[in-house]
Design a protein around this nucleic acid. Sequence first.
RNA 1: UGGGCGAUCGUUCAACGGCAGGACGUCGGGCUGUCCACUCGAAGAUGCGGGUUCGAGUCCCGCUCGCCCAGCCA
Length: 591
Amino acid sequence: MIRTHPAGGLRPEHAGQSVVLAGWVARRRDHGGVVFVDLRDASGVVQVVFREAVPEDPLSQAAHELRAEYCVRVDGTVEIRPAGNANPELPTGEIEVTASRLEVLSVAEPLPFPVEGSAGEIAEEARLRWRYLDLRRLGPARALRLRAQATRVIRGVMDAHGFLDIETPYLTRSTPEGARDFLVPVRLQPGSWYALPQSPQLFKQLLMVAGLERYYQIVRCFRDEDFRADRQPEFTQLDVEMSFPDEEDIYALTEELLARVWREVLGVEVPTPFPRLGYAEAMARFGVDCPDTRFGVELADLTAYLAGTGFRVFQAAIGAGGYVGAVVMPGGASQTRKELDGWQEWARGRGARGLAYVLLDAETGEPRGPVAKNLSPEHLAGLAAATRAQPGDAVFFAAAAVRTEALALLGAARLEIGQRCALVDDSAWDLLWVTDFPMFEPTGDGGWTAMHHPFTAPVPANEADFHLRPGEALSRAYDVVVNGQEIGGGSIRIHRAEVQQRVFDVIGLSRVETDAQFGFLLEAFRYGPPPHGGIAFGLDRLCQRLAGADSIRDVIAFPKTASGGDPLTGAPTPITPAQRAEAGIDAVPEP
RNA sequence: UGGGCGAUCGUUCAACGGCAGGACGUCGGGCUGUCCACUCGAAGAUGCGGGUUCGAGUCCCGCUCGCCCAGCCA
């Protein structure tokens, strides 16, 4: 190594020592005869002093010519700073390095944005375009360090439990259902294409058939869908599968894993076992299947209470076998007309017609507002009790013939209320299981689709008859939720061909189709497959949470934008006609 | 695919339909104890294409790009 010491580690006990440092010029304060340089390396920052002993001395001259982000080597002596000159803001603030020699290892052009200084306000596009400069900064680099720490803990836990780290193919076959595949042309077989895996789901099940019993992998997955703050075209899963488990084994492993990650990365103790919440209860109380339980404001089901109402909007929903519900905004009655209109705007932005509301007078508790005029005196009288609202609160309603639509709006409103009323304790960590998912959900055209995926086992009570009543059958799937965000999910899998066949029948996959798509898995299942199950965690989201970041882009070294581009490399790019011809993209399939 | 917001010196933020301005950075000078050093001076910008207008950074239409949301993501 060029250096003898990390810059950020120097302390008063090093005083008197000769050191060699290597790093970057973070800041330069040039007083003419004395020049201060803040030298930054990965360990931190230390102040280097260049003093002009005699006029025009070359060392001082060289220091004068330094610029931001030059990469330099400094030889010098650690000294206690003169009295009154210590900087308590810096870990190295009690000392400084008096330079005796300076070597510019490489120069830097003027920067496209300031590397030092309050950095958060730089446009993300510029940060990604020059991501290597962005990552020189403390905050962005810290997110990547945290991620490395998390994966180190994860590997330790998985190894301690005898899980084997096994790689699976990135070039594999396309399987319909689920997300859109990224496709890769095959030069040696024009007209045939690989797909990049959406997850190693089928391979990990094959590894269970193979008798390896315990598999894990920190693996890249690819989905060609639209991107968001928490979605990238390529993302990373911690993928886990084991043989002969029941749910409790997966829960125990997950709880140990996450508790240790939280402890060793954040120093936070999360209580185990995690609370468990059934899907139906989660939907009824919170309107979503991944509730943020850090605050209350639970939904109220008013379908029965408002039966017989004359208010047409509610009547129509109830008459159609739907749902009317409400969520209370504490203190919401004092909102201005503009704020209440803002809620209408907010609801329309989510595809709803609006958000009906009743305001309860802060003094009298008297219901006010346009909707109040449409409800009977009896319904109004009991409204506060039915919704657990207090005087001064606002009650927001949602009604729909399809229950889940109204629940979705109320669930979103609940989160918005939590935000606007600052009800969320930002320091809290709520980790919980959501269990007892339905096996199937309606497709909208009378059919059914697997809610989790088609290899998810039914609960024992539904094993014999799930195909007869697909709307009621529950599966052995589970999600783990952190502060209202799903960060992992999995299931106990089907391992019997007969059960698997009935699932395919329910979701309308013919034997020809299943053979074509999953034939290799079904064939493997003819050779003594073990009962098995597993879970997969979104590692990017997990690290985003740990880092307190706004986007998974912050915990990815070189992330892509919402349109799938990489501002740094310029990918994706057009290809040359020669590449196009060679890749076999335009091969015409045999009729 | 749809909705919202946005795009001005390198960065960040201004500008009633009427001379595009500041801060930081950059470049040049000064300065021996600063730590967002200070100080004197200089250069430097309206994403693209149409339209309205005497006149457009500003208004209108289209496009591109970015961010957020809905759809989508088994």
